[in-house]
Amino acid sequence: MTILKNRLFWPAVILLALLVVNMFTSNQFITVRDGHLFGTLPDILRGAAPLLLVALGMTLVIATGGIDLSVGSVMAISGAVACLLISHLGDQSAIGSVLLIVAVAIGASLLLGLWNGTLVAGVGIQPIIATLILMVAGRGVAQLITDGQIINVQSSPYAAMATGHFLALPIAFLIAVAAIVLVTLLTRRTALGMLLESVGGSPTASRLAGIRAKRITVMVYVVCGGFAGLAGLIYSANIKSADSISAGNLIELDAILAVVIGGTALVGGRFSIAGTVIGAVLIQTLGVTVVAVGVPSKATLLFKAVIVVALCLSQSATFRQKVFGRFRPSRPAVAAEVPA
């Protein structure tokens, strides 16, 4: 009974169901080739890496009651910066130079996050508007960086970020796992998680409790920018080029969806990293499944929408009450707010 009530129960069930469908429909669900894992499942995990990274940062931003619409544009900028610099390298395969360039691109993304954070916490612009600025302008910046062209690179160390393997596992997946572990440690082993939830729960009360709410808010936008930048590098490494138009296009919506599926409320407060991970992998799996089961390409978006609606209904307390409520004693009502 308690496991049924867990918010993550149904998302997890749907994720498993989709994976089972893939097991039967794909020729190779999981296999070992040249000592590396290949097949549909490793592909899903590899392909989910950018969304996972973006959704992780988005989780923290949403926990403070904010939102970051600019993640897709940050991805485009970071990929553009990296590819432009790599294309100027004499030896594009020099690992040291590529690592340095990756660091520069992530640094640029952190700065973009700082810009967002400053607009939100420093200037006091509503998050949806503040990040809309960079969402629109950022793609323009990315196109300026690439001079409106698609920059192709031939750098094997760079490409390895997306397509390489380490210890039989896709490197992109390992990067995402490292990010998950990092964020979990950062928020749950320090007091950051609680302070974040406090700021999201009530900014005014948090300020009066002595929490530096502005500083924390800026910080989460910076972290979110950094992760978006990393996601942009993986995306661009995968196609070995910088495509400022389609890199991270509409990924903010998938990321927000992943966060919400994972049980973090858009109004801020309590957040769940595990929930976001399930949500992001679920969305990626859904995309793969739609192709695998042969849904006509014209109908894929609608098919996805149906699944998402089902998911959201399964998480709605009102809906569950209506459908399952008659079989169970009704839960005691939560104390209502009393106007002063």
Binding site: A191, M194, T204, R212, E337
Partner: peptide, 22 residues
């Protein structure tokens, strides 16, 4: 309600909040 407690945090978290913030 609006400037004191953080409703969705636990009693423990609410109690340690100011000390932790400091």
């Amino acid at each position: 309600r609006t400037e004191g407690i953080i409703g969705e945090l636990t009693v423990r978290e609410n109690i340690i909040l100011a000390l932790q913030a400091a």
